[in-house]
Design a binder for these strands. Sequence first.
DNA 1: GAGCACTGC
Length: 696
Amino acid sequence: MPEEAGFPPAKRFRPGCGPPGGRVVMLLTAGGGGCGGRRQQSAQAQPAASPYPEAVERQRRSLPIFPARGQLLAQLRNLDSAVLIGETGSGKTTQLPQYLYEGGIGRQGVIAVTQPRRVAAISLATRVSDEKRTELGKLVGYTVRFDDVTSEDTRIKFLTDGMLLREAISDSLLRKYSCVVLDEAHERTVHTDVLFGVVKAAQKRRKELGKLPLKVIVMSATMDVDLFSQYFNGAPVLYLEGRQHPIQVFYTKEPQQDYLHAALVSVFQIHQEAPASQDILVFLTGQEEIEAMSKTCRDIAKHLPDGCPSMLILPLYASLPYAQQLRVFQGAPKGCRKVIISTNIAETSITIAGIKYVVDTGMVKAKKYNPDSGLEVLAVQRVSKTQAWQRTGRAGREDSGICYRLYTEDEFEKFEKMTVPEIQRCNLASVLLQLLAMRVPDVLTFDFMSKPSPDHIRAALAQLDLLGALEHKDDQLSLTPVGRKMAAFPLEPRFAKTILLSPKFHCTEEILTIVSLLSVDSVLYNPPSRRDEVQAVRKKFVSSEGDHITLLNIYRTFRSLGGNKDWCRDNFVNSKNMTLVAEVRAQLRDICLKMSMPMVSSRGDVESVRRCLAHSLFMSAAELQPDGSYVTTDTRQPVAIHPSSVLFHCRPACVVYTELLHTSKCYMRGLCVVDADWLYEAAPDYFRRKLRAARD
DNA sequence: GAGCACTGC
């Protein structure tokens, strides 16, 4: 046990174990109420396909959910809505859809199972179609962006929650579905949260119209499901035990001033005491921290006493190139310990086998949104209790585990109970555009499970209004024809508007490229250790007109060379993201063609591209002040050019930006040099109002 | 003058 951090004796617990509150039906399971299930295998860790049907069947029958099958189906058959708590490894996600189908619920319509992430939707569909011994895309299929593997025969369909939401735009009653299972509901992504409201409304409306009832099942891995139950008219809560292994939790005796130092000490204490085969997972907040800690660990590991096992230090964060991310899944050489130093990506998105120890700093970098200023603040903050438990649970996936919390138990008690749902801390413009496209009667009173504040909603409506998407008629809010077209694009409303404006400036081809580049993770790869090299190589693409034009140059060169991977490596371009850009671009171009938009190119004329950006991003502009600083044109907020911008060392008189980010300062990211006159031309009324407001 | 948690359509 690390002594310097001062850990008192451990507390034993099972994540998710304990009596659930509220109206709960305990379902009969094999584990039978005690802690520490009898079986050692885990549902998700099983190999996907088995050539032997009996083996597949035996495996299915061995899952904790199996003994509850009859009871579960009997309950669900009679319910409109239900909440199902299933612990990790209970088998709920793979088995429940099959039970529903076998119970005849898929006979009159498709069973939809939503997932927050693409990879989960794809791998679950693959797994379940294997279990049913059918070809993927027949009985069992999946739909995610760019990839629809379903057919007329499909009865069980896994899809991302965002995808079901998009389907709801063309059919808000979700007519093709007999049942919607909302999985991972505890994560409370914006898409899941909007879907709660959409399925609830569809369920009610279908009942009123005497149509096929819509069954809604909300699945959560955590206990705090009262909100779900209340929201769905007091839906019963069904509780299913899982196969999580016991985990010992240690808190520090004293609060830690320096969580990085405490993490470092803990890692090496564990390293000196535990067998080399037991891996460690450390949660930190961001790339810079993780790289620095990795380097320090490697340096220290070189000077360890004889007899101490060696250490394989693996950083893990989303912007790390894919090949390097994959290294965390490979086993360490014999006699060597894996130490994975990760962001919260390892909390939910990436599951690593063989983790025995979790070191939780209790910190996370997360975005907050201020609707008044439209400002996103990215700040290091405390995790919530549910997040801390999620991290702890990562230690007990295959066997019992140990979690060191680098904070005191008193501190933990003061953590927020739950992470604030994303819908209350993001820009709502996209969400409201989608709801309006579904012809929701009144977005201001829409039945959100956790309501965003009225100011928050009004700010988003104001933004949509500026983009020309809204129509007010007899106190009713609806979409203009432009607004309706905007909703067809899988983009932020302002970028959809940029595309719709582009024919006027004869630069649709260029704008499609730029918008695609903006809507995926950066194609620029910036390894901190090779900064000078990166700068030298990138020079040939840099445009004095800003980041958008620079990106356009990079994409053009990439295409002219036929999408060459070697070129990407040599030019510090992330080839995976670049390939994705091409896919996004093709999808957006398709949507344009369906709208009969003319496909025009401005050829070499980048001024028209900049004019187009000025006309759609006029509300995100900043002007140079006499003292060399910048202020935004809308709220006179002092801002600075982000160091990642190609204009970082320049002083253009007027720019539009694609993002404001508050870290140590308020930074503009993604800049384009524009003419102040263009902005005024784009929205004369808006700027006249601003001028008047400034005078008063 | 110096920096970017994580998804998704």
